[in-house]
Design a protein around this nucleic acid. Structure first.
Lengths: 345, 345
DNA sequence: TTGAAAGCGCTACCAT
DNA sequence: ATGGTAGCGCTTTCAA
């Protein structure tokens, strides 16, 4: 059942073939099932594989097939629970399709990752993350190396060779603003990690559009962060304090994500503003803690399962045939909890 | 500067050699620097590499060297911010040593990962995570395949072939209990994700030891979770509610980690118990949100930078020479914030 | 139905 | 100081 303890020589196909008394080719075909092999030989091979503890060498295989059966996920924020949730679902979907998944945090310069992905014959990449700082040059390198690419954002003016799966924040923002309106809110502020110059963030423009459409408000109250963008709890806290210094004339606050919302709530409470009695707060993402936060956060939920399997599906299609470029948006759901209440004032 | 647009054939060393007018071997040696090459030839090669956009094929290289220059990190909780923080620092340290890092979430059965690591000639693995459910059999497979292993826990009775880097929870627990004692607490409860049967969790036994040592209390108040262990916010919330149903006779509560502490605080507040006025709460890990939580959480901080570089250092040493087995513990620091106050009653 | 053998791109040894 | 070349373990075509 187990390999001999000798750490010396790795068991290769040759030894399996010898022990089973068949040719090396036959061993290959038994492993891959790509050619019919008689029950008897198959049996002998399987037994030999077991007895020797043979593992086929994916590296040698990759060299010939020029594909490694692995995909990579590039993220720039390993500590972001939502991204991780999505990545988890990608890993699950990918591995059940036989792909190994390489998760790359964004600690190094992008060049390093791109070079590695190419050198290691990674079959496809998903670029997760809020607006990922990937340049056209990187893109070209990947594409030229015949690596499938799926972006975590989709926009109208993106490279037509690129696939994309993204969350439909446009629709999500609509759900949020509509919810607040139904509670009687009208003076709604938006706390954004990204400013107008950020490419890839759909939330801010969507907010403007909604406020215009729903209330005819042309210049709603908005507080944004600046590059390098940061969407953490501390940033939410910091920005909210800044906002409060400018005005307190709002009854609801929408945040770029739940973490910013946590920070915002801390800041509000610290300034003596009650949530949701005085100000309602809405987050986006429904991360792990959001339902247990105090007060439980009203937020947008993203069906990460669906997201992950869509990414893998699209990536696989693209790997199989580069000319298949698909894009998809995942519709979020509004989860109403305790951080929103009817407008007080 | 760029490869030709033809996605057809990948540029190989042969083409570089031709273009530079040198032998293939020389190209190799220029790339690896393992043999002296005259400035002139080196120049020509470098230029050809640039012009053709040549990327050396790590897969072919790995096949020969029988090492892939990559390590893997196995975690079972991709959504745990502390683990991710550590993994981030591991990636950074590893990549600057020339290793590529494979982060594996624990969505599939361990067998799958182990088989993949072996098949892909991964050089070493770090097993992150709270007590990782890895069996002796898996260990043997890895070790037999000559893969270096560093555990995220260290205990006295562990396999002598295994390296380990762990957080010194024994010392950490002492810091916590001492802090609470200095605030006048004596009836201290411990909310544990793991029960007595869990191998690998040092916190629970350390708590017992501290309570005995500091107060002579033999059977302190403890509420534990059960397999499958779960150390999330919800679990903290759930367990705390259970605890409160049994007794309210405690003035301080220590939790397995910050997320459990968040849940605990929610539960306490919901039951009308104020934090820290009525009960002080201490977490462990100092995750991203802890300082912005309301109230800001008193907790243990882990120097994740040091952790990551230690892991990589030890792993590299072990890869270079399997007989070098090192173990290390990282000492945590206590971060006092607003969730602890002098004992009221 | 099965086996033999030609490479995949590279490293490293042996020549020169 | 440089070039030629034998494999690494595997897939796959071609023969038998």
């Amino acid at each position: 059942m187990q390999a001999r303890k000798g750490e010396k020589s790795k068991i290769t196909r040759r030894e399996v073939a010898q022990r089973a008394g068949v040719s090396e080719a036959t061993v290959s075909f038994v492993m891959s099932g790509k050619r019919f092999v008689s029950e008897e030989l198959k049996d002998r091979v399987v037994r030999a594989v077991d007895e020797l503890g043979y593992h086929p060498d994916m590296i040698a295989r990759a060299m010939i097939e020029k594909k490694s059966n692995s995909i990579a996920v590039l993220t720039n924020d390993l500590e972001n629970p939502l991204q991780m949730k999505i990545i988890k679902s990608i890993e699950e979907a990918a591995m059940s399709k036989g792909y190994f998944v390489n998760i790359c945090g964004g600690t190094m310069k992008l060049d390093r990752y791109v070079a590695n992905l190419i050198s290691r014959h990674i079959d496809g990449v998903f670029l997760a993350g809020d607006p990922y700082a990937i340049t056209g040059n990187h893109m070209n390198q990947l594409l030229e190396s015949n690596i499938g690419v799926v972006l975590g954002t989709v926009s109208d003016d993106m490279d037509p060779r690129l696939c994309g799966v993204a969350i439909d924040f446009k629709e999500g923002m609509r759900l949020i603003v509509d919810h607040l309106r139904s509670l009687g809110h009208r003076r709604i502020a938006y706390l954004s990690a990204f400013d107008e110059n950020s490419i890839g963030d759909v939330r801010l423009p969507s907010f403007y559009r909604c406020m215009k459409e729903f209330f005819g408000v042309g210049a709603p109250l908005v507080k944004t962060g600046h590059p390098p963008y940061d969407s953490t709890v501390s940033e939410g806290y910091r920005l909210t304090l800044g906002l409060l210094r400018e005005t307190r004339d709002f009854t609801a606050l929408i945040c770029t994500n739940d973490m910013m919302a946590f920070g915002a709530i801390s800041a509000l409470q610290q300034e003596g503003i009650r949530v949701p009695a005085d100000v309602s707060v809405v987050g986006i993402d429904d991360i792990l803690f959001s339902k247990d936060f105090y007060p439980a956060l009203t937020t947008l939920s993203h069906q990460t399962e669906e997201f992950g399997s869509k990414v893998v599906e699209i990536l696989c299609n693209n790997i199989a045939d580069r000319s298949v470029v698909q894009r998809e948006v995942i519709r979020p759901k509004l989860i109403v909890r305790d951080s929103t209440a009817p407008a007080a004032r």
